[in-house]
Amino acid sequence: MEGIEHRTVKVNGINMHVAEKGQGPVVLFLHGFPELWYSWRHQIQYISSKGYRAVAPDLRGFGETDAPSSISSYTCFHLVGDIIALIDSLGVEQVYLVAHDWGAIIGWYLCLFRPDRIKAYVCLSVPYWPRNPKFKPLDGMRALHGEDFYICRFQEPGKIEAEFAKTETENVMKSFLTDRSTGPPLLPKEGEVLIPKDTTPLPSWLTQEDVAYYASTFNKTGFTGGLNYYRNFNLNWELTAPWTGSQIKVPVKFITGDIDVVYTSFGTKNYIESGAFKKDVPLLEEVIIQNGVAHFNNQEAAEEVNNHIYDFINKF
């Protein structure tokens, strides 16, 4: 973590923790769940060495950034508002955006609401899903996958947090980060063991030090802040009605692994291959499918992802 500076910025009524390194055009990194700025450790070092200013916040509800108690404080407007205020605080008009998982969803909202602030977007794992005016997202998820689908299980405040609390946080983090199952993620029913103790060795790309960093942070904060993102799916659907049918008008490169749980679920593979993704994102320049790579590709395949990011943003 050599040379990475940490500071706190006041944004949109909250205090946001930011890690950054380097000088030059800003590359802004947005993490997912259950992650932190730390998920971008490899990218920060690489991109800053190439003449860019790498900036990676802990998002609202995560790490050392404030976590408002109200679930409704985690809508897409709050999350995008935080990032616009952060960009303003950096003293720049535009940034290169790189985002993964929930950060990727925020990234799409950013491109939808404020394309004037984004030069180009490197999106990892989660493609743009246009708003379907016919039904609410959670209704669709329940109909397709049932109540055991992980996002459905995340809805009731406090319930999944209590399930996580039955095992060590280190074990929770290891379970998330090393999972290589494909297809819709279903969680065991109530009363069953949610996260069994895993004694398998860590993969080469994840160290015990990495797991311990995540665990020590989530031990302090808990998981509620990040889970509240999932609890706003239907509210976000209501709030974004004015953007129904809108396209994303920002240059995009999309990178995912062929065993990423998002790629192998939700009809994602077909959405990409059918050309529908390109129709919704007309400036989509390239889709990269990484062989044998799972969900956390910015960590698992860091060198390859680094090169893809640099090659793309260097064009603009």
Score class of each variant (00 low, 15 high):
E303T: 02
Y74R: 02
T256E: 03
P130N: 07
Q208R: 12
P127V: 07
H42M: 09
T8L: 14
F176H: 11
Y213A: 14
P57K: 01
I87C: 09
R41L: 13
C111Q: 08
A104Q: 11
N307R: 06
R180K: 14
L30T: 00
T240D: 15
T207I: 12
P25E: 15
G226Q: 06
T65H: 09
S175C: 11
T240F: 13
K269F: 04
D210F: 08
N171H: 06
F135T: 06
E161N: 12
N232A: 05
G61E: 09
K21I: 09
Y310I: 05
K249G: 15
I83S: 06
E168S: 15
D148G: 10
T224C: 13
K253A: 11
Y230K: 01
G267M: 12
A143P: 03
S265F: 04
T264L: 13
I288F: 05
I106R: 02
E93C: 03
N297R: 02
R180G: 08
F312G: 00
P201I: 00
F266P: 04
C76N: 04
S204W: 02
F149Q: 09
H6I: 08
T178S: 08
N314L: 01
L177F: 13
N270L: 14
Y121M: 02
F135I: 11
E286G: 05
I47R: 05
D82C: 07
D82T: 07
R142V: 11
I44D: 04
R7I: 04
T199I: 11
T199Y: 07
Y96V: 01
P130I: 04
G257K: 01
A294P: 04
K50D: 06
G24C: 08
N270G: 14
G103I: 01
N314P: 02
N171R: 02
P184Q: 04
R114D: 14
L138Q: 11
K174H: 13
G13H: 00
H308R: 05
W108G: 02
V305E: 04
F33A: 07
G183A: 14
T167C: 11
